Amino acid sequence: MNKTILRSAYLLVCVLTLVSCGLGEKKTAIEINYSKEQNGILVFDQKDTIKLVGDSTIVFKTTSGAHTFVLNKEKSQKFNIPEKGGLLNLSKKRYVRFSEEYEGENKSELEMMVAAKMKKQFNNEIVVIDSLVYVYKKDSTMVVTDEQIKSALESYEDNKFSSNTMKFYESDIFIAKDWDYGLIDELPERIEIKSTNSYGNFGVTIKTKLIEENLFLLMAMFTPEYFVIKSKEEIMSNSGDKKVDEEKKKNQLEFE
Results as ranks from 00 to 15, higher is better:
37 E>A: 13
62 T>S: 04
71 L>D: 00
38 Q>K: 14
75 K>F: 12
69 F>P: 02
83 E>T: 11
52 L>G: 11
88 L>G: 02
48 D>P: 05
55 D>W: 05
72 N>K: 06
45 D>R: 07
68 T>N: 04
81 I>Y: 01
94 R>M: 13
49 T>W: 07
51 K>D: 14
76 S>Q: 14
36 K>Y: 13
46 Q>E: 15
90 L>R: 04
60 F>C: 01
41 I>Q: 12
40 G>Q: 09
75 K>C: 04
68 T>M: 02
43 V>P: 00
78 K>E: 15
50 I>F: 01
63 T>Q: 09
80 N>F: 12
64 S>G: 06
38 Q>Y: 10
53 V>N: 09
76 S>N: 10
78 K>D: 14
97 R>E: 13
39 N>D: 13
100 E>S: 05
41 I>D: 08
64 S>T: 05
80 N>E: 12
36 K>I: 15
41 I>G: 00
59 V>R: 09
100 E>D: 03
78 K>F: 14
54 G>M: 09
71 L>M: 06
97 R>F: 05
67 H>L: 10
75 K>A: 13
85 G>E: 00
85 G>A: 02
65 G>E: 09
53 V>R: 05
95 Y>C: 04
66 A>V: 10
56 S>M: 10
84 K>W: 06
86 G>A: 05
36 K>L: 12
43 V>S: 00
63 T>G: 06
57 T>D: 03
93 K>N: 11
36 K>M: 14
49 T>S: 12
53 V>F: 04
76 S>L: 09
80 N>P: 03
44 F>V: 03
43 V>K: 04
41 I>P: 00
39 N>K: 09
62 T>H: 00
48 D>V: 15
67 H>Y: 10
60 F>P: 00
42 L>C: 07
87 L>R: 07
98 F>N: 02
61 K>Q: 08
97 R>S: 08
43 V>M: 03
87 L>Q: 08
79 F>E: 01
93 K>E: 14
46 Q>I: 07
80 N>W: 06
67 H>S: 04
92 K>S: 11
68 T>G: 01
85 G>T: 02
49 T>M: 09
91 S>N: 13
85 G>V: 01
60 F>W: 07
52 L>R: 07
87 L>N: 06
76 S>A: 14
92 K>V: 09
84 K>Y: 08
55 D>M: 07
41 I>T: 15
95 Y>Q: 03
85 G>Y: 03
67 H>E: 05
54 G>A: 06
70 V>F: 05
96 V>I: 15
45 D>E: 10
63 T>A: 05
50 I>C: 02
65 G>H: 10
80 N>K: 08
48 D>Q: 13
63 T>E: 10
53 V>E: 11
76 S>M: 14
60 F>V: 07
96 V>S: 00
44 F>K: 04
65 G>I: 13
70 V>S: 05
99 S>V: 07
87 L>T: 11
70 V>L: 08
52 L>Q: 09
77 Q>Y: 08
96 V>D: 02
77 Q>S: 08
83 E>Y: 05
63 T>M: 10
63 T>I: 12
58 I>E: 01
